[in-house]
């Protein structure tokens, strides 16, 4: 930071709607409709309908159009990764965050002071989106969904092997895995394909539109079939993906004696998995685990950390132990359970 550079908290404010950039006159991921919104990614707690102007990556805009239709926003302006866009007195750059298709960190440069709002992110490979690129900055704004050292996600391949093992163990049952419609669903499909599984995967109706969208963006998810209207016997020995809420509800009664799985970072804690009635907990997350969070703090070299949501307490404690300045923004409106 230059000696003359303004302090980040003087130009980036926390307001009831979220993060507001004063010299650019825009909000990032506002929780209610704003004049100008910069959106990190398409999950519902970050991308909301009804903003007058929206600036986001092309992938995020496509997701918003698919989800909100006409309500996606007044004008939708695409930002390419790495392209510098001047807004007011601020230079804005969207940089890959590795979370879901189109996800971005938002880098803001203002008079020699640089802040990165990372949105949600992860560091491990994901064949459905571009990997996280760490940016040197003065303040790094991070999530802390899994900000406790109990959250150390195992290798993805290990979890997929467990799913395929269960499939082999129960040839007369089907595997139904609860996945979020955006990101987790498509990532799980890609992981199955990379593990050599090229059989058709059956989808709950609520997952089909976003899978189509991913395919249109050049991501080959392999053979997919709708689970609706398929004879029960045909689903024996098959993998079915469904939104988390559907796996233990009436919808699931059409399935042949399903092994109920769930792909989520929360599955790391057995009591949580058991409470949800999950038989095959798969620890697969689109959020950084504890080690990835700490690695990222180091990689950005930021002397100051702001924590948006999650288990802030522990991450701030650890950042301070690493000699950094750290504070909680206590933003509201981000879903605790979403991962």
């Amino acid at each position: 930071m230059q000696l003359t550079a303004p302090k980040p908290e003087s130009w980036l404010k926390i307001v009831p709607e979220g993060i507001y950039c004063v010299p650019g006159d825009f909000h990032i991921d506002p929780s209610s409709s704003a004049k100008r919104a910069l959106v990190t990614h398409g999950h519902g707690d970050h991308a909301r309908p009804g903003n007058r102007q929206v600036l986001a990556t092309e992938g995020t805009l496509a997701i918003m159009r698919a989800r909100f239709g006409e309500e996606a926003g007044g004008t939708l302006q695409p930002a390419s990764y790495g392209e510098v866009i001047r807004i007011g007195d601020v230079d804005v750059t969207f940089v890959p965050a590795g979370h879901v298709l189109g996800s971005a960190q938002i880098v803001m440069d203002y008079r020699g002071s640089r802040v990165v709002v990372s949105g949600d992110y992860k560091r491990r490979p994901d064949a459905t989106c571009r990997p996280f690129e760490p940016q040197r900055c003065d303040v790094f704004v991070t999530e802390a969904t899994f900000g406790l050292p109990v959250f150390r996600h195992p290798p993805d391949a290990h979890e997929i092997a467990r799913l395929l093992h269960s499939l082999r163990l129960y040839p007369d049952r089907c595997q139904v895995v609860g996945v979020y419609a955006l990101g987790k669903c498509q990532r799980l499909l890609m992981m199955l394909r990379r593990a050599g599984y090229d059989e058709p995967v059956y989808l709950h109706g609520a997952l089909i539109a976003l899978c189509d969208l991913y395919t249109q963006h050049g991501i080959d998810l392999g053979p997919l079939l709708s689970a609706t209207g398929v004879a029960r016997d045909e689903l024996k020995g098959r993998i079915v993906l469904a939104p988390p809420g559907a796996t233990a509800d009436r919808w699931a009664r059409r399935l042949p004696d399903p092994v109920v799985g769930m792909a989520s970072g929360w599955m790391r804690v057995r009591q949580r998995a058991k409470a949800l009635g999950v038989e095959l907990p798969l620890v697969i997350s689109d959020h950084a685990d504890w080690d990835e969070l700490l690695q990222t703090l180091t990689d950005t070299g930021a002397p100051e950390i702001w924590v948006t949501h999650g288990r802030e307490e522990a991450l701030i404690h650890q950042a301070q132990a690493m000699g950094l300045t750290a504070r909680a923004l206590s933003l509201v409106g981000f879903e605790e359970e979403e991962d």
Binding site: H158, R162, L167, E199
Partner: peptide, 12 residues
């Protein structure tokens, strides 16, 4: 790969 093909359970 067929769904019932024999796989090693895990890397264990």
């Amino acid at each position: 790969m067929a769904p019932n093909a024999v796989l090693p359970p895990t890397a264990a």
